[in-house]
Design a protein around this nucleic acid. Sequence first.
RNA 1: GCCCGAGUAGCUCAGUUGGUCAGAGCAGGCGCCUUGUAAGCGUCAGGUCGUCGGUUCGAAUCCGACCUCGGGCUCCA
Length: 657
Amino acid sequence: MANITLSLPDGSQRTLPDGATGADLALDIGPGLAKVALVAIVNGVERDLAVPLPDGAAVSIVTADSDEGLYIIRHSTAHVLAQAVLDLWPGATYAIGPPIDHGFYYDFLLPEKATFNPEDLEAIDSRMREIVASDQLFERYETNTAEAMELFAGHPYKCEIIEKVSNGDATTELSGEASADVSGSLSYYRTGDGFVDLCMGPHVPSTGRLGHFALQKVAGAYWRGDESQPMLQRIYGTAWASKKDLAGHLHRLLEAEKRDHRRLAVDLDLVSWPESLGPGLAVWHPRGALVRKLIEDYSRERHEVGGYDFVFSPHIAKSILWETSGHLDFYADSMYPPMEMDGATYYPKPMNCPFHVTVFDSSQRSYRDLPLRYFELGAVYRYELSGAIHGLMRSRGFTQDDAHIFCMREQVPAELASLLDFTLSVLRAFGFEDFQAKLSTRPGGKAVGDDDLWEMATDGLRSALDTAALSYVVDEGGGAFYGPKIDVDVTDSIGRPWQLSTIQLDFNLPERFGLEYVGSDGERHQPVMIHRALMGSIERFFGVLLEHFAGALPAWLAPEQVRVLPVAAEHQEYAELVLSRLNESGFRATVDPADEPLGKRVRAGKVAKIPHVVVVGDDDVANATVGENARGTDSPERDLQLGAFLERLTEEVDTRA
RNA sequence: GCCCGAGUAGCUCAGUUGGUCAGAGCAGGCGCCUUGUAAGCGUCAGGUCGUCGGUUCGAAUCCGACCUCGGGCUCCA
């Protein structure tokens, strides 16, 4: 029998009999690997372990340790979910079931337009575990369009996918490596007695490799995400390589829930959402308003020294403004309905830009004036779908830290570079360290502005990203028709990304409003406009900060920085002395008098996430000291000189630690 | 907007098959206790059980509509 030679990732070679599969290779390397092997990557393409390997191939074995392995596990678990549902609901049909971050989902249409109840998940889960226990093989079959249509007759969504794949346009958006050589071909998998699913694979060898999963929730989802399509029933689940990983993930979900800003905002008495206001509208309580003011003050301070001019604009304007800006053409769905007054039609503003444009246009501008940078904490109103509203993160009224920069073409690169630098500097001050940017370039269809302008602006954005050493991805063609842009995500303390900043070129509004400046050549030129927001929405930024810090805001932002606890009533006088020293130094502090036991008051201070809970008793009165409980520590620090404590606090606040 | 779920005192929640089911803890008020580091004791007050309609001798509980909140609505075989 002939042999084949295979090369492994470490550069070594192995010789196996002709016809050997990925599973054989894994076993040849070691029985331990064979047990955990999921698929093989053959010459860069993921393959089932049961597929014979070609001679000379570069092969690596994928286990659950890798992202690829987890992806396979989730994908295969989704198949088991579909198998269970089709078992339990005769007449049900299925659509798609991809792996996603942390898990998978599968979309179904049940007979009689039935829906899943949360209780159904238990039954499905049990059936899935039976399928796992019986260790059914995932068997792959190649097929053609006609056969596939027959096999999946009665399953309209599968047939739609078959047609799409047969036309060769299904793989265009799939990530490169897996789609490279399967374009246009059809495959399906068979498990158990009769379950088949259209799938390009690969899959784990058998269902016994699965099992560390949990079904999470039921949701409605439109077929292809299109509102005009039928609403399918989606089941979400999570799946992991081990019981421990699954438990870890479920634990992280609980932790994330604890830092939900909607819960923290209410617990810490910062913000509330009275029903009488309407969805997506909040009121700010004194403590929340104080924090917000600190954020806004800092923003204003930075813009003041950053070369911005402050402007203000009204909340409503006549329709002519929105006609000129074009918002009524392309943004009307997101605008609040008009108000008729004195024979004119007014709209609440969804954006600040048209107002800032009118400020620019209020007098003749010279090249000597540019760049002009107009800044406003501008409240805008947008009609968000009721189902999209989410606490402070997505609301119908919010405040943008909005600026519009008007400059000459040749100023664009330098302006973008300093702008990105400014953006990151402000975000860093709030404790964000990890950033991820996205560059969106010229879209394929209609776009305004000449080619040179697009190229210059896009290059400017790219070099600004390079200069800032910011990692970024490029969304080719993802820009708006009026200009390219950069979006900046921050990663919070538990690894979640939040899109905050956006820097967006606009070649359209200057044109629509006929903006001009007089150049050094004495001719009139059109300025370039840059929209930018750093925090995006102040409300949302506040929510992100709360989640990032789990409510424990750094001292410079904490509504109450120090709480002084006298041990007994006789120490009240000294506590008030400490309080006045704190206040004189500009700190926000209170005294919690001794009418409850100390332990209870310490606890209350901790629960309120006060950065410093200070205890004063006999020793402190005698020695002018305090006992300090820094947030996040268990053991108090006794006999700290008051002066030293104040210095420490000053340092902490000044450095925004 | 659409699908699923939820809505009981400021907060967190109990309330079995419709019949003292209107309750608890925390928070709040008032007393007592005077406390050295994560919940001292007692006491009082608080809710038209989201709203409106229906079924029933009887509804927090069953049904319908509406309101609000939560999750989801292409991470594409």
